[in-house]
Nucleic acid binder design. Structure first.
Length: 491
RNA sequence: CGGGAUGUAGCGCAGUUGGUAGCGCACCUGGUUUGGGACCAGGGGGUCCCAGGUUCGAGUCCUGGUAUCCCGACCA
């Protein structure tokens, strides 16, 4: 037992950390708070990128790239925005090093001080709006629908692999529109794109909603979000889409001439998801044996393990295994044939289980003799034998079934973790014993939300878009409320 | 940024009173093995976090630094 995982029950946080490292997704680096994403983990990110990128383009967006560095003055142009990010910015102050006096290394050359310091982007609204100013003159230039894939830096005090790192990878969409309505429609559209992707590709059920003013993006008029529920009962924000109003247009003086020839400020949105999604993926599906990956994102969908005694056995098994491998590959399935002689089958079984490969096919002499193979499902841990005839179609269907099954399992769990609370005692008790989302009334004031956070560490995760009007009393203050919101402790 | 802990082989750790730096896993070689993390035999691998100090002698004692982890504060 070389790679024993801490169980989820023993220590959920340690289970998560162990899993990220042992499944070879990522590791800590020599730089505080920054991770190395290893090939297996990066491969998942590439699949996320590929599908999202396709969806962005399908909805009319194009990719571009803006600089990593932002002049300090840009950041301060939008008051709420700078307030939100100032405390976590990395700043470049010099542009040259020199040999240290003792010749043992290098030191900053104090003579090479930048006239204007540069901020390493925590997000790109400012540099992008400074650029858009020159791109937009007329209503004919709108809408402007641009996305960029990039890294950003937010100097976090406490970091965790994928969930919160000082540097992370993400995409940020930045759009400009002629009307308020169109911008809001864009923000909502992209929220739906995210929800569709996260549910259908990542098999993570989400709740669509809007943020309370406290949790809103710095500089936004409205922040839409998708919220997911992790196995330990904590919520995780999986994606956000912001309606920015005219805040950035005014800050960066981005105006256009409308059809009547009158000048107007443009309306903006921005939206993003990050490598944090990989953290959500892990904490939604995985178990004490390791990762469980949805087939649509798994770097390896099917692994074939040959079993044999001696050379003759191997040759018989190898012919069959190789045939199956070629057939699956032709059918567009990502399949790996692990014919390494350096590890025993049992070792491989454990390894691929740890790495979350959805389907394992084992082929031994008995199977060759009976024209069958042994199939093992990662999601249910079931094993059974099936005929080699029609195997490719069988696998295709099974992959879809697994995708569906893990989503359903996650959805049932998520639904079971939504609890209504009508009194403060109930609210606190649910939070302490069960966790999850608590559906409760709130009087709508930032002060009350702040107070609840102080008392319980729970925040309003979102005001669900599908919330039904319902008269009630605020869980804390007893003041009137017209609908329920979702509280939870969150990542 | 406050409180606590820990830095010894790639990883996980032991190291007594200051006296030749060890164990497990991993790695390399050979052989036997192969349907749930094989076994035997042999082998390689060290700036004991860094810098000073005490001492005949420091992984061990003292001083300073530094890094990482945990708890808190902070965090769209």
């Amino acid at each position: 037992m070389a790679k024993e995982l801490t169980s989820r029950e023993t220590d959920y946080a340690k289970w998560y950390n162990d899993l990220v490292i042992k499944a070879d997704l990522a590791e800590n680096s020599g730089v505080r708070g920054c991770m190395v994403i290893k090939p297996y983990g990066y491969s998942i990110w590439e699949k996320i990128q590929a599908e999202l990128d396709r969806k962005f383009k399908e909805t009319g967006h194009v990719n571009a790239y803006f600089p990593l560095f932002i002049p300090k003055s840009y950041l301060s142009k939008e008051a709420a925005h700078v307030e939100g990010f100032a405390k976590e910015c990395a700043v470049v102050t010099h542009y040259r090093l020199k040999n240290s006096p003792d010749k043992k290394g290098v030191v900053v050359d104090e003579e090479a001080k930048l006239e204007e310091e540069l901020i390493v982007r925590p997000t790109s609204e400012t540099i992008i709006w400074d650029t858009y100013k020159n791109w937009i003159q007329s209503y004919r230039d709108l809408p402007l629908l641009i996305n960029q894939w990039a890294n950003v830096v937010r100097w976090e005090m406490r970091t965790r692999l994928f969930l919160r790192t000082a540097e992370f990878l993400w995409q940020e969409g930045h759009t400009a529109h002629a009307t308020r309505e169109e911008a809001i429609a864009e923000a909502e559209q992209m929220l739906n794109v995210y929800a569709d992707f996260v549910e259908n590709f990542m098999a993570i059920p989400v709740i669509k909603g809007v943020k309370s003013p406290n949790e809103r993006f710095a500089g936004a008029e409205e922040t839409y979000c998708i919220e997911a529920m992790m196995q330990d009962g904590k919520a995780l924000q999986a994606g956000t889409s912001h309606f920015l109003g005219q805040n950035f247009a005014k800050a960066f003086d981005v105006k256009f001439a409308n059809r009547e020839g009158r000048e107007e400020y443009v309306w903006a949105t921005s939206w993003g998801v990050s490598t944090r999604l990989i953290g959500a993926l892990i904490m939604t599906h995985s178990d004490d044996n390791g990762l469980v990956l949805p087939p649509k994102l798994a770097p390896i969908q099917v692994v074939i393990v040959p079993i044999y005694r001696g050379k003759e056995d191997f040759e018989n098994v190898d012919v069959v295994a190789r045939g199956i491998f070629e057939n699956l590959k032709k059918a567009g399935i990502t399949v790996k044939y692990d014919d390494r002689d350096t590890h025993k089958p049992g070792w491989k079984f454990n390894e691929y289980e740890l790495k979350g490969v959805p389907i394992r096919i084992a082929i031994g002499p008995k199977d060759v003799e009976n024209n069958q193979v042994e199939i093992a499902r990662r999601d249910t841990l079931q094993k059974f034998t099936v005929s080699q005839i029609g195997l490719t179609d069988y696998i295709k269907i099974l992959l879809e079934e697994i995708q569906q099954n893990i989503f359903e399992k996650a959805r049932k769990f998520r639904d079971s973790m939504i609890t209504r609370a009508d009194t403060w005692d109930e609210f606190v008790q649910i939070l302490e014993t069960k966790g999850g989302f608590i559906s409760a009334h709130w009087d709508g004031t930032p002060e009350t939300e702040e107070k609840i956070k102080e008392l319980t560490k729970a925040t309003i995760r979102c005001i669900p878009l599908d919330a039904q009007p319902e008269e009630g009393k605020c869980i804390l203050t007893g003041k009137p409320s017209s609908k329920r919101v979702f509280f939870a402790r969150a990542y």
